[in-house]
Each structure stands twice: as structure tokens, then as C-alpha cells.
Design a protein around this nucleic acid. Structure first.
Ligand SMILES: [Mn+2]
Ligand SMILES: [Mn+2]
Ligand SMILES: [Zn+2]
Ligand SMILES: [Zn+2]
Lengths: 150, 150
DNA sequence: TCAATTATGAAAATGAATTTCAATTTCATC
DNA sequence: GATGAAATTGAAATTCATTTTCATAATTGA
């Protein structure tokens, strides 16, 4: 079972648990978002969905993302431009982000050593960590080449 | 020369460079903020200033912080609650944050090893880092005790 | 089918931040 | 000290992303 399928199934489980109904529109939004498996702003998601299916409003997109977030099936990030981005969550993995300030590309990475050191730092301050956020901002490989080109 | 004095002098230099004028109100806001040397929301800063001096509007506080940010004399952070916080910048040092989700306390730390590993990760992806953000969210020592108390 | 309840879209409301604009203040020059 | 050009200010208006409202439509279990 792919991780997307798993996330979808968890959505359906939560939906049932809270007595919510299954509508075509919400289902389309959730499916599309989870299957895409990448970061979206609400606007981006709305526009890409509109290409494939008409008659889905911003409200519905906002509401679907809100549910996904509530149920830990989506992560919310703000990469310093006051535009919220969402990405589907694969419960089994964590990752941090490299954000290109030129083209907006988002690269994901995991680094166990960094995570361990974070834990150590927290301990030094008697602090219990329940979540963290690590983002590196700069220039991706492609943009570096462009910027340097005379 | 204290770091606060240095930051203030840099403010004055920038102000001159751009032909801006010296007003009592802006001066008070900037002085207060830099001398406090800690994180503020705009509302917090506005309210604390009001205690000491009357007749300074939100606009003036917002505008002062905007200048400080532009001139790299203040950092802007959003610790996941969609409230922007500002802190004066000491150009010579960098630090990351531990954020208590219970009481809002913000602890600052530096860790050279983490910074080095971040740089290594970026290199792996051909990425040039110009800034980063690392925040650890959880419970501070005090709040941990409180929460556990029956 | 029939309720009861949830979902939906359009419009209104919200809230932080910015902008506008008329009035005030600063400051270099006289 | 007076003058005037330019910056500053406060209050109100505006912006923009997001949330809420509310009337209508769709879903679901009986
Ligand atoms: Mn990601
Ligand atoms: Mn800090
Ligand atoms: Zn790029
Ligand atoms: Zn605390």
C-alpha cells in the first residue's frame, strides 16, 4: 500500500469518526492534494484543481485543507513570505526544507545527526521538544548558475 | 561599547544615509526596542511603550519596526501562531530558538555543530544557504513541572 | 420518501499589516 | 527667529489571506 493510499484511508477513517459526509467535491480536493504529494499554496491548489474539475470553490479547498491539518494529514509551512503552504503528511517520516529564494523550489531532506543535536540542545535547557522546524534559505543549483551568468 | 549602543548607532547612520529625520516618537520606539533586547509582538511593544510615553500610535510602532527590519537591525519571526515577533539584531551573533508552547517563553541557543551540518546538507544538494531558521517547539522546564503536577 | 445533518458557494467579516492624506514637525537656509 | 521643502504622524481607509455566515443543496440512515 502506497503512502498516499494510507493517508487517504486515514482521511476516510477520521471522516467517519467525526460523522462527516462524503461529498464529491471534498473527495476530489483531498484526493488530488494527497496524490500530488507536494507543497501547495491554497491558490495553487485551487487553480490546479480547477483545470481538472469545475465548480469547486475556494471555501471548499480551504475547508478540506483545514480538516487535513486538524487530522495531521497535512503540514502547514510559512517560508517567510506570509503565504501558507500545505503538503500531505506521511506519518512515518519527517523532513526539513531547503527553500530557493529565487525560484521557490522546495527541496526536502532528513538528517539524523541534526535531529540528535537538536534533542541534546533542548535537554541542556530542560526543554522537551514536541516539534521542530528547520529551513535553509538560499539559492538552488539551477538558480545559482543563472544568477552567475553574465 | 555595548551591542545596544552599536545597534542604535547603526540606526542613526542608516537614517542619515536615507535622509530621514529624527523625531522624538520614532526615537523613543527605536531606543526602547533596542535597549529591551528581546522579542516583542507589535502589540506588546506598543503597550509597553504606552506605559512610559503617551501619544505614540500603532502606525509609528509599525513604521519603526519596518525600518529596523529593512536595515537588518531587527529580526522578524513567526513562531507558528501567525503573530509576528521582532527582536533587535546584534550583527555579530546568530542564534536559534526554543519556543515554549505553554507559556510562550523564548530561549535562545547557538550550536556550531548544527550549523556545520546544515551547511553540509545544503552542499549535498548544490544549494547555497544565505539564511536559516531553526525552531524547537515544546515545553520549558517550568511548564513541564506544572503540566505534570496532578 | 423523509428528516436530520453535513457540505457548499457567495458574500460578509476578521485581523494583521500597510497605505493614504491632511496636519504637524524637523531642519537647512535665510 | 522666520521660511519652506521634505519627512513624520495619527486616524481612517485599504489590502489580502483566511474564516465565518447563511441560505441552499447534497448526503445518509431510517
Ligand atoms: Mn516538504
Ligand atoms: Mn531571539
Ligand atoms: Zn531556485
Ligand atoms: Zn513554558
Amino acid at each position: 500500500m502506497s503512502k498516499q493510499t494510507n493517508t487517504l484511508q486515514r482521511f476516510i477513517k477520521h471522516r467517519a469518526k467525526y460523522g462527516l459526509k462524503s461529498s464529491d467535491k471534498r473527495t476530489f480536493v483531498v484526493d488530488f492534494f494527497i496524490k500530488a504529494g507536494r507543497h501547495f499554496t491554497v491558490e495553487e491548489l485551487y487553480n490546479e484543481i480547477k483545470k481538472q474539475k469545475s465548480g469547486i470553490s475556494y471555501s471548499t479547498v480551504y475547508r478540506a485543507l483545514k480538516l487535513l491539518k486538524q487530522w495531521d494529514l497535512a503540514n502547514e509551512s510559512m517560508f517567510g513570505d506570509s503565504i501558507t503552504r500545505y503538503e500531505p503528511v506521511d506519518k512515518s517520516e519527517h523532513h526539513d526544507h531547503l527553500v530557493c529564494q529565487e525560484c521557490g523550489r522546495i527541496i526536502e531532506f532528513e538528517n539524523g545527526k541534526i535531529e540528535k543535536l537538536q534533542y541534546d540542545v533542548a535537554q541542556q535547557y530542560g526543554f522537551t521538544v514536541s516539534a521542530h522546524r528547520l529551513e535553509l534559505y538560499g539559492l538552488c543549483r539551477k538558480c545559482k548558475k543563472k544568477v552567475r551568468r553574465p
